[in-house]
Computed example of a mutant assay.
Amino acid sequence: MIEFRTLADDHPDLAHSPLLRGALLTLQYAQKHGSIDLTKAKAFKRVFVHWAVEHFNWPGKSAEEMFRYNKVINEYEFPPLEVLHFLLISRRLGRHFKGEFRLTKRGAELAQAPGRLFAELIPYFVLRIDHAAYARFDDRLFRNWDVWMNVINVEADHSTTEAALFETFYGEPQDWRTAGWREMAAFSACVLRPLEWAGLLIETREDGAGRQMRHVFKTPLWRSALKLDTDELLRPMSV
């Protein structure tokens, strides 16, 4: 069983969630400016996309890096914003009206309530969204979130690696240089990345011996926001 705890709006661990930060900034921008202009395809216009790239402080997608190769960035070229736009519409925190994205009454309320916004968006994002679709993967991974999160809860409690987690779930050691790199990529994109975007996990990359190792850690937000069946198996953290 997976249970998300209710956190106070001023809970410090909420700061670990990139998706929550992006949602708050988007809602507050729309609130301040009255709306956000849309393209004919109902995507955010480039003016706001550029603002989001500069202000979201997204892990691995700094404004400097993104603008180094692209002077013009569309919504679909900044995947976190594309997913966030879908989430805000799906959860009815915003709506499209006459070429603009406007806040609903509930969206305006949650723009100043991080804890409540986390509860509204993050469980839905992690557990209900088809992550393979926006990650452009055709195949679906075997297992489900109840299994993935309860096992990760134990295996990553004192850090682990992406490859070790994959082997735990699927029985074969793989990395990005083996024949099973596609399965590894699907696992990374559809399981680890959503948890990282939600702020529950963090990944670090270490280069050495001609290969890259990806370490996986639980953030403080994982411990404060989640209640899982395997919590009783965790070892106390050493100080």
Results as ranks from 00 to 15, higher is better:
Ala225Met: 01
Ile122Ser: 03
Glu203Ala: 11
Arg177His: 11
Glu54Phe: 00
Tyr29Asn: 05
Ile129Phe: 08
His55Ile: 00
Asp37Val: 13
Trp145Thr: 00
His16Phe: 12
His85Gln: 13
Asp207Thr: 13
Tyr134Ser: 06
Phe187Pro: 00
Pro123Ile: 02
Arg205Ile: 11
Thr104Leu: 07
Glu167Met: 11
Lys32Arg: 15
Thr219Ile: 05
Arg214Val: 15
Phe86Leu: 10
Val154Ser: 03
Val126Pro: 08
Trp148Val: 03
Ala186Tyr: 00
Ala198Met: 04
Gly199Asn: 03
Arg235Leu: 15
Arg143Ala: 15
Arg235Glu: 15
Leu192Tyr: 05
Leu226Tyr: 02
Phe67Ala: 05
Pro123Ala: 04
Leu117Pro: 03
Leu117Ser: 01
Gln31Trp: 07
Cys190Ala: 08
Glu54Val: 03
Glu100Cys: 09
Arg140Asn: 10
Tyr170Val: 04
Arg68Asn: 13
Asn57Glu: 14
Asn150Lys: 08
Leu24Tyr: 01
Ser35Lys: 13
Ala156Glu: 03
Phe97Asp: 12
Leu93Asn: 08
Thr230His: 13
Lys71Phe: 08
His55Asp: 08
Leu20Cys: 04
Ala52Arg: 07
Phe137His: 15
Ala164Ile: 00
Arg5Ser: 11
Ala164Phe: 01
Ser238Ala: 13
Gln31Asp: 12
Gly99Phe: 05
Ala179Thr: 12
Thr6Leu: 11
Ser90Met: 10
Asn144Val: 02
Ala119Leu: 11
Phe97Ala: 13
Gly199Pro: 02
Ser17His: 00
Arg46His: 09
Trp148Met: 05
Met184Ser: 06
Gln28Asn: 13
Phe142Ala: 15
Leu27His: 06
Ile122Gly: 05
Arg91His: 06
Thr26Cys: 08
Glu109Cys: 01
Lys40Glu: 13
Asn144Ala: 06
Asn74Thr: 12
Ala30Met: 12
Leu19Arg: 02
Ala225His: 01
Glu206Pro: 01
Ile152Asp: 07
Phe101Gly: 03
Phe142Asn: 11
Asp37Met: 12
His50Lys: 14
Gly180Glu: 04
Glu162Phe: 04
Ile202Val: 15
Arg177Lys: 12
His85Val: 06
Val147Gly: 03
Thr26Gly: 06
Lys32Val: 03
Trp197Met: 14
Thr168Gly: 00
Ala15Arg: 10
Thr168Leu: 11
Ala209Met: 10
Arg193Cys: 06
Leu93Asp: 09
Leu19Phe: 05
Phe48Ala: 09
Pro18Lys: 01
Ser90Glu: 15
Gly199Lys: 02
Arg128Val: 07
Met184Tyr: 00
Pro220Asp: 12
Phe67Ile: 08
Leu226Thr: 04
Leu192Ala: 03
Ser224Glu: 10
Ser224Phe: 00
Glu109Tyr: 07
Arg128Met: 11
Glu183Asn: 14
Lys42Gln: 14
Ser159Ile: 09
Leu93Phe: 08
Pro173Glu: 10
His33Asp: 11
Arg214Phe: 06
Gln212Thr: 15
Asn150Gln: 09
Asp130Thr: 09
Asp175Ser: 12
His215Ile: 08
Met237Phe: 08
Ile152Leu: 12
Phe48Cys: 06
Leu38Ile: 07
Phe86Pro: 00
Ile152Met: 12
Arg92Gly: 00
Ala225Asp: 01
Val49Lys: 03
Gly171His: 03
Asp229Gly: 11
Asp207Cys: 05
Trp222Asp: 06
Ser35His: 15
Leu19Ile: 01
Ala163Trp: 00
Pro194Asp: 08
Leu221Gly: 04
Leu20Pro: 01
Asp10Met: 03
Thr160Ser: 15
Glu162Arg: 15
